[in-house]
Simulated scan of single mutants.
Amino acid sequence: MSTTTPNVPNVSPEGPSAENDSLEDRLYTVRYDDAGESHLDVKVPGICAESCHSYDCVDVCPANVWREGEDGVPHIAYENCLECGSCRWACPQGNVEWTYPTRGAGVTYKNG
């Protein structure tokens, strides 16, 4: 009886040797067709300025769409949005207004 395992590649503990693309390289493969208006907003700007100390919407966004503003309200660069919806679930105050872009606009993935 043989104890060898067939078809198992010899992989080092460090993982594959191929270099991984940076986040910026990966985001470059995503196209966003601008609808002309943002599909993202905050419901009540005062809540962000007065109550938010963690800026979870900024921290959770994989595309750097939400950025902490000096005025206490997150600034939004919606053109980079991946439409993952993470920002609306991360906000502890439920203050993120998120809707799908109008038909024909929004994110398009090139490679997958």
Rank of each mutant, 00 (worst) to 15 (best):
G94R: 01
K43W: 00
D34I: 03
S22L: 01
W98E: 00
V107W: 01
V60E: 06
G104V: 10
E14C: 00
T5E: 12
G104W: 09
E37I: 05
N64V: 05
E70H: 07
T3F: 05
V30N: 10
P45E: 07
P13C: 10
W89A: 14
A63C: 13
S54N: 11
R26G: 09
E24P: 10
D34P: 07
K43R: 10
L27W: 03
V58T: 03
C57N: 14
N10V: 11
E97M: 11
V42G: 04
E37Y: 06
Y55R: 02
L23S: 10
S38L: 00
Y78K: 11
C57D: 00
R88W: 06
K43S: 02
K43A: 05
G72D: 14
W66F: 15
T5S: 09
A105I: 04
R88V: 07
Y28V: 01
Y78T: 13
C61F: 09
V65S: 02
D56Y: 04
C91F: 07
K43P: 02
Y78C: 02
T29E: 13
D34F: 02
N7P: 01
Y100A: 10
E19V: 12
E83V: 10
G106A: 09
W98V: 05
S12W: 04
R31A: 10
N64S: 15
Q93W: 10
S22E: 02
V60W: 02
L23T: 09
Y28C: 01
Y109H: 14
M1R: 15
T99D: 15
S86V: 06
D71E: 13
E97Q: 09
I76Y: 04
C91L: 08
P6Q: 08
I47K: 06
E19M: 10
E83W: 07
P92K: 01
Y32W: 05
A105N: 15
V96D: 04
A49W: 09
D21L: 13
E37N: 10
T99N: 11
Y55Q: 03
Y32S: 04
V60Q: 00
S54K: 03
E83N: 13
S22T: 13
N80Q: 15
P92A: 06
H75T: 12
R31E: 14
L27T: 09
S2H: 07
V107E: 12
G112C: 08
P9K: 09
L23C: 05
P9F: 06
E37P: 08
D33P: 00
S38W: 01
N80L: 10
R103D: 12
E97C: 01
T4H: 11
P16W: 08
T102L: 08
E37K: 12
T99Q: 12
G72F: 15
P101Q: 01
C84K: 04
V11C: 06
N95W: 06
G104S: 14
E24A: 04
G94F: 03
E68I: 01
L27D: 13
W66D: 04
T102N: 11
D21K: 14
G85W: 07
G36K: 09
P101R: 08
I76V: 15
A49G: 01
Q93K: 05
T99W: 03
S86D: 13
T5C: 11
E14T: 10
G85M: 02
R103Y: 10
G85K: 05
R88Y: 02
D41P: 00
Q93D: 07
P16M: 02
V8G: 09
N7L: 06
